[in-house]
Simulated assay, not measured.
Amino acid sequence: MNFDKPVDMTRATHYGNNYFEVYSRKLKRIVKLFSSLEYANFLTLEMNPFVGKFCEQPLEIEIILEDKPKKAIFDFWVLYSDKREEMQEIKYLNELNEIDEKSSRSKEQIRRQKLWCEENKISHIIRTDKDIYAGRFYIKNLEYLAAKSRRYIPLEDNFYRSLVLNTLKATKKITISDMVKFEILPIGHEMDYISYLYYEGIITMDIATRPIDGKMEVSLWQINH
Protein backbone atom coordinates (compact mmCIF):
# COMPACT_ATOMS: atom_id res chain seq x y z
CA MET A 1 0.00 0.00 0.00
CA ASN A 2 1.04 3.58 -0.49
CA PHE A 3 -0.67 6.72 0.76
CA ASP A 4 0.66 10.17 -0.13
CA LYS A 5 -2.43 12.33 0.26
CA PRO A 6 -4.67 12.42 3.34
CA VAL A 7 -8.44 12.18 3.23
CA ASP A 8 -9.94 15.65 2.86
CA MET A 9 -11.39 16.51 6.26
CA THR A 10 -12.70 19.70 7.81
CA ARG A 11 -12.02 20.53 11.44
CA ALA A 12 -15.71 20.33 12.33
CA THR A 13 -15.95 16.67 11.31
CA HIS A 14 -13.29 15.47 13.74
CA TYR A 15 -13.49 14.91 17.48
CA GLY A 16 -10.06 16.39 18.21
CA ASN A 17 -9.77 19.33 20.59
CA ASN A 18 -6.81 21.01 18.86
CA TYR A 19 -5.71 21.57 15.29
CA PHE A 20 -2.16 21.76 13.91
CA GLU A 21 -0.65 22.44 10.52
CA VAL A 22 3.07 21.70 10.47
CA TYR A 23 5.68 21.17 7.77
CA SER A 24 7.16 17.66 7.59
CA ARG A 25 10.73 17.43 6.35
CA LYS A 26 10.23 13.70 5.82
CA LEU A 27 7.14 14.14 3.63
CA LYS A 28 8.09 17.54 2.18
CA ARG A 29 4.58 18.90 2.72
CA ILE A 30 2.25 20.40 5.32
CA VAL A 31 0.69 17.82 7.66
CA LYS A 32 -2.74 18.50 9.19
CA LEU A 33 -3.42 17.08 12.64
CA PHE A 34 -6.69 17.20 14.52
CA SER A 35 -5.63 16.76 18.15
CA SER A 36 -2.65 17.39 20.39
CA LEU A 37 -2.18 13.63 20.72
CA GLU A 38 -2.07 13.22 16.93
CA TYR A 39 0.51 16.02 16.85
CA ALA A 40 2.62 14.24 19.46
CA ASN A 41 2.41 11.00 17.49
CA PHE A 42 3.42 12.88 14.34
CA LEU A 43 6.60 14.02 16.13
CA THR A 44 7.49 10.41 17.00
CA LEU A 45 7.13 9.41 13.34
CA GLU A 46 8.85 12.46 11.88
CA MET A 47 11.91 12.06 14.11
CA ASN A 48 12.15 8.25 13.93
CA PRO A 49 14.93 7.26 11.47
CA PHE A 50 13.33 3.82 11.09
CA VAL A 51 10.17 5.38 9.60
CA GLY A 52 10.49 5.76 5.84
CA LYS A 53 7.23 7.61 5.27
CA PHE A 54 3.77 8.05 6.73
CA CYS A 55 0.46 9.70 5.99
CA GLU A 56 -2.07 11.24 8.33
CA GLN A 57 -5.78 10.39 7.84
CA PRO A 58 -4.72 8.13 4.94
CA LEU A 59 -7.90 6.23 4.16
CA GLU A 60 -11.63 6.11 4.74
CA ILE A 61 -12.89 2.53 4.70
CA GLU A 62 -16.36 1.06 4.33
CA ILE A 63 -17.23 -2.45 5.47
CA ILE A 64 -20.49 -4.34 5.95
CA LEU A 65 -21.42 -5.07 9.56
CA GLU A 66 -24.81 -6.30 10.72
CA ASP A 67 -25.89 -6.04 7.06
CA LYS A 68 -25.17 -2.31 6.99
CA PRO A 69 -22.28 -0.31 5.48
CA LYS A 70 -20.04 1.16 8.18
CA LYS A 71 -17.26 3.71 7.70
CA ALA A 72 -14.07 4.59 9.56
CA ILE A 73 -10.94 6.67 8.98
CA PHE A 74 -7.47 5.68 10.17
CA ASP A 75 -5.30 8.26 11.93
CA PHE A 76 -1.97 7.23 10.36
CA TRP A 77 -0.45 4.87 7.84
CA VAL A 78 3.24 4.10 8.48
CA LEU A 79 5.85 2.52 6.23
CA TYR A 80 9.06 1.53 8.03
CA SER A 81 12.48 1.37 6.40
CA ASP A 82 12.34 -2.45 6.55
CA LYS A 83 9.12 -2.29 4.44
CA ARG A 84 6.76 -3.16 7.30
CA GLU A 85 3.45 -1.31 7.15
CA GLU A 86 0.85 -0.52 9.77
CA MET A 87 -2.31 1.45 10.28
CA GLN A 88 -2.44 3.45 13.51
CA GLU A 89 -5.33 4.70 15.59
CA ILE A 90 -4.47 7.37 18.17
CA LYS A 91 -6.50 7.43 21.38
CA TYR A 92 -6.21 8.56 24.97
CA LEU A 93 -6.08 5.53 27.23
CA ASN A 94 -8.88 6.77 29.48
CA GLU A 95 -11.10 7.15 26.41
CA LEU A 96 -10.81 3.41 25.84
CA ASN A 97 -11.36 2.53 29.49
CA GLU A 98 -14.41 4.68 30.19
CA ILE A 99 -17.98 3.43 29.88
CA ASP A 100 -19.76 6.20 28.03
CA GLU A 101 -20.94 7.19 24.55
CA LYS A 102 -17.56 8.54 23.42
CA SER A 103 -15.76 5.39 24.51
CA SER A 104 -18.34 3.18 22.79
CA ARG A 105 -17.94 5.19 19.60
CA SER A 106 -14.15 4.82 19.75
CA LYS A 107 -14.35 1.07 20.34
CA GLU A 108 -16.73 0.65 17.43
CA GLN A 109 -14.38 2.63 15.18
CA ILE A 110 -11.47 0.42 16.24
CA ARG A 111 -13.55 -2.70 15.62
CA ARG A 112 -14.20 -1.63 12.03
CA GLN A 113 -10.55 -0.77 11.48
CA LYS A 114 -9.32 -4.09 12.85
CA LEU A 115 -11.69 -6.10 10.67
CA TRP A 116 -10.59 -4.19 7.58
CA CYS A 117 -6.91 -4.66 8.45
CA GLU A 118 -7.40 -8.39 8.98
CA GLU A 119 -9.07 -8.68 5.58
CA ASN A 120 -6.30 -6.67 3.92
CA LYS A 121 -3.42 -8.29 5.84
CA ILE A 122 -1.95 -5.15 7.33
CA SER A 123 -1.05 -4.53 10.97
CA HIS A 124 -3.36 -2.41 13.10
CA ILE A 125 -1.85 -0.57 16.07
CA ILE A 126 -3.60 1.45 18.77
CA ARG A 127 -1.23 4.09 20.14
CA THR A 128 -2.31 5.75 23.36
CA ASP A 129 -0.89 8.69 25.28
CA LYS A 130 0.92 6.14 27.45
CA ASP A 131 2.74 4.82 24.36
CA ILE A 132 3.42 8.20 22.78
CA TYR A 133 4.60 10.09 25.86
CA ALA A 134 7.50 7.71 26.49
CA GLY A 135 9.01 9.91 29.19
CA ARG A 136 8.57 13.20 31.00
CA PHE A 137 10.58 15.23 28.46
CA TYR A 138 10.17 13.04 25.37
CA ILE A 139 7.60 14.93 23.30
CA LYS A 140 8.82 18.39 24.32
CA ASN A 141 12.36 17.42 23.28
CA LEU A 142 11.13 15.90 20.01
CA GLU A 143 9.24 19.11 19.29
CA TYR A 144 12.43 21.12 19.85
CA LEU A 145 14.54 18.82 17.64
CA ALA A 146 11.91 18.76 14.90
CA ALA A 147 11.63 22.55 14.87
CA LYS A 148 15.41 22.96 14.67
CA SER A 149 15.90 20.38 11.92
CA ARG A 150 12.76 21.12 9.89
CA ARG A 151 14.27 23.39 7.24
CA TYR A 152 17.94 23.30 8.20
CA ILE A 153 20.38 22.64 5.35
CA PRO A 154 23.87 22.04 6.76
CA LEU A 155 26.92 23.52 5.09
CA GLU A 156 30.05 21.35 4.96
CA ASP A 157 28.01 18.37 6.15
CA ASN A 158 30.65 15.81 5.15
CA PHE A 159 33.34 17.67 7.11
CA TYR A 160 31.36 18.04 10.34
CA ARG A 161 29.74 14.62 10.09
CA SER A 162 33.19 13.06 9.88
CA LEU A 163 34.28 15.02 12.98
CA VAL A 164 31.22 13.87 14.93
CA LEU A 165 31.50 10.23 13.84
CA ASN A 166 35.22 10.00 14.59
CA THR A 167 34.78 11.66 17.98
CA LEU A 168 31.90 9.40 19.03
CA LYS A 169 33.64 6.26 17.80
CA ALA A 170 36.57 7.19 20.03
CA THR A 171 34.68 8.47 23.09
CA LYS A 172 31.38 6.52 22.83
CA LYS A 173 29.63 9.44 24.56
CA ILE A 174 30.22 13.18 24.75
CA THR A 175 28.19 16.08 26.14
CA ILE A 176 26.79 18.74 23.87
CA SER A 177 28.83 21.39 25.73
CA ASP A 178 32.05 19.48 24.98
CA MET A 179 31.06 19.13 21.32
CA VAL A 180 30.70 22.91 21.21
CA LYS A 181 33.93 23.42 23.16
CA PHE A 182 35.97 21.22 20.82
CA GLU A 183 34.35 22.84 17.75
CA ILE A 184 33.12 19.62 16.15
CA LEU A 185 29.79 21.30 15.34
CA PRO A 186 29.17 24.18 12.89
CA ILE A 187 29.81 27.42 14.79
CA GLY A 188 26.59 29.37 15.24
CA HIS A 189 24.45 26.37 14.23
CA GLU A 190 25.41 23.86 16.91
CA MET A 191 21.90 22.84 17.97
CA ASP A 192 20.61 22.95 14.40
CA TYR A 193 23.25 20.40 13.46
CA ILE A 194 22.65 18.25 16.54
CA SER A 195 18.95 18.17 15.64
CA TYR A 196 19.73 17.38 12.01
CA LEU A 197 21.99 14.45 12.99
CA TYR A 198 19.29 13.12 15.31
CA TYR A 199 16.72 13.38 12.50
CA GLU A 200 19.09 11.55 10.14
CA GLY A 201 19.58 8.73 12.66
CA ILE A 202 23.28 9.41 13.13
CA ILE A 203 23.19 10.24 16.84
CA THR A 204 20.92 9.48 19.77
CA MET A 205 20.32 11.05 23.17
CA ASP A 206 18.31 10.25 26.27
CA ILE A 207 15.53 12.66 25.35
CA ALA A 208 12.88 10.83 27.38
CA THR A 209 14.12 11.53 30.89
CA ARG A 210 15.94 14.88 30.79
CA PRO A 211 15.77 18.22 28.96
CA ILE A 212 18.17 18.98 26.12
CA ASP A 213 20.98 21.17 27.44
CA GLY A 214 24.76 21.31 27.49
CA LYS A 215 24.96 18.36 29.88
CA MET A 216 23.04 16.07 27.54
CA GLU A 217 25.20 13.16 26.41
CA VAL A 218 25.31 12.25 22.73
CA SER A 219 26.17 8.82 21.31
CA LEU A 220 25.90 7.02 17.98
CA TRP A 221 22.72 5.26 16.96
CA GLN A 222 23.29 1.50 17.15
CA ILE A 223 22.72 1.19 13.41
CA ASN A 224 25.76 3.38 12.83
CA HIS A 225 28.18 1.60 15.19
Rank of each mutant, 00 (worst) to 15 (best):
S24G: 08
C55P: 01
V51N: 04
Q88C: 07
L163W: 00
E108Y: 05
S177A: 08
S149Y: 07
M47K: 01
M216P: 08
T44C: 03
I207H: 09
S149E: 10
S35N: 12
I187W: 03
L43C: 02
T171L: 13
V31M: 03
I203N: 01
K91H: 05
L168C: 03
T175N: 00
K102R: 15
T10E: 10
T13I: 14
M1T: 14
L163M: 05
I174N: 07
Y19N: 13
I63Q: 07
R105C: 11
R150L: 11
P69K: 12
E119C: 05
C117H: 06
R11Y: 06
S149M: 03
F50S: 14
E217G: 01
Y152I: 13
Y138H: 14
S195D: 01
S123E: 12
D129F: 11
D157P: 07
F76H: 05
K32V: 09
F34K: 06
K173G: 00
N48G: 05
S104L: 13
N141Y: 13
A134M: 10
S35T: 09
T209P: 00
L65T: 00
I126Y: 03
S24L: 04
H225T: 12
A208G: 04
Y19A: 11
M216H: 08
N48T: 08
K148V: 10
K107H: 10
K169I: 06
I174H: 08
L43A: 03
M191C: 00
A147K: 11
L45T: 01
A72F: 01
V164C: 07
S149T: 12
L145K: 03
E89T: 01
R210V: 10
D75Q: 03
L220N: 04
T171M: 12
I203E: 02
Y198M: 10
E86K: 12
L155R: 15
W221Q: 14
E101Q: 13
P69S: 00
Y15D: 14
Y15N: 14
L168V: 06
G214L: 10
N2R: 15
I187T: 06
W116N: 07
Q109A: 06
D4G: 10
R127P: 03
Y193V: 01
K173V: 11
E95Y: 09
S106W: 09
E143Q: 15
K173M: 12
N158A: 15
K28W: 00
L43T: 06
A134D: 09
A208V: 09
A208Q: 06
V218S: 02
R136Q: 11
E95F: 04
D67L: 04
H14D: 05
Y80R: 13
L168N: 05
I212P: 00
L197F: 04
E183S: 02
A40H: 05
K53G: 01
P186F: 01
M87V: 12
K181H: 12
S177L: 09
T167R: 10
P6L: 00
T175K: 04
D67W: 00
K83A: 12
R127S: 11
K83I: 11
I223R: 15
R210P: 01
E118V: 13
